[in-house]
């Protein structure tokens, strides 16, 4: 299987934070969700991928090219959306297209116009009059309009109302249909990723905790809820993370079927990505 993006041993040290030996890849035709709490290292990872910060060590390959010699031809195939608007507030979407069509040789004006219509973006209004959601939609339209092979989105669905968010997520799913296009989306809205992501990369305190297929995570992970006595009876090896809430113990288990057989009296339920993340971050580990 070919990969759109491969990160190996990415390390970046700051005085108060270290992105530590991060490695993961994005198979072509897939959507990878990068999740983690604020300050976990999502943006540092994305910024390193895009060459906006200089990595201390490790290698990053985009569409078969090492980012150390990232040329314009490769950048042409990468679409980027950051949190918030990326464009001068004085521009209108029409003026923006005049700027970008001189920069991207693959700029598709008619597709851009159709995206503006589809997303209800007023073409002649200044960006400074737009709401945060509208600015985000414009950024996404601009990223799609040059037909990238890889889309990198940093908190791209934040600030959007649920209806628009759903439309955007459908656009993402359509985008990866041909198996040649891929998306890396960093987001703290894990419900969005549950809908569209094929793989989940969970980063915490600068380290990758797991990088797994989403379906596998949702299928296998489980939450065991029990009292203190039952918690003491659970083998420590079976506990991924746990936390106590009043008189209830919540235990994250990596294989809920196995746990259900082993602890038949315990109540074990399926978990959401949000719950997995929460227990990893706020829970304790054995």
């Amino acid at each position: 299987m070919s990969t759109a993006l491969t990160i190996t041993g990415l390390t970046k040290k700051y005085s108060n934070f270290t992105l530590d030996n991060v490695s993961f890849s994005i198979p072509s035709g897939s959507i990878v969700g990068l999740i983690g709490e604020n300050g976990a290292g999502k943006s540092t990872t994305v910024n390193s991928i895009l060459g906006l910060i200089k990595k201390d060590s490790g290698s990053i390959t985009i569409l078969g090219h090492d980012t150390d010699d990232f040329d314009c031809a490769v950048k042409e195939k990468v679409g980027v959306v950051f949190d918030g608007s990326n464009f001068s507030e004085e521009l209108t979407p029409i003026k923006l297209s005049k700027v970008l069509r001189d920069i991207y040789s693959s700029w598709d004006q008619s597709y851009y116009n159709s995206l503006l219509n589809q997303l209800d973006i007023p073409a002649a209004k200044k960006i400074k009059t737009f709401s945060k959601g509208m600015k985000m939609k414009l950024s996404i339209a601009a990223a799609f309009a040059h037909h990238p092979h890889l889309l990198i989105l940093d908190e791209a669905t934040s600030g959007l109302d649920p209806v628009v968010r759903d439309d955007i997520l459908d656009m993402f799913l359509e985008f990866v249909q041909d198996e040649e296009h891929s998306i890396l989306v960093s987001s703290h809205i894990t419900s969005d990723l549950e809908k569209v992501a094929d793989y989940i990369v969970f980063i915490h305190a600068g380290k990758i905790i797991f990088c797994s297929p989403k379906d596998e995570l949702l299928e296998h992970y489980g939450m065991m809820k029990c009292g203190a006595a039952q918690f003491d009876a659970v083998e420590k090896n079976d506990i991924v993370a746990y936390r106590r809430q009043d008189y209830e113990w919540q235990i994250l288990v990596a294989d809920r079927e196995k746990a259900a057989k082993k602890y038949p009296k315990a109540m074990i339920t399926a978990v959401t990505i949000d719950e997995i993340m929460l227990l990893y971050v706020k829970g304790e580990k054995e």
């Binding site: 031809a73 608007s85 990326n86 464009f87 001068s88």
Partner: peptide, 18 residues
Amino acid sequence: HADVVSKWNKFELTLPVK
């Protein structure tokens, strides 16, 4: 200042330009 406020200065580095 406009580039910094709009984050264009960051975004333009991702564009296919040297």
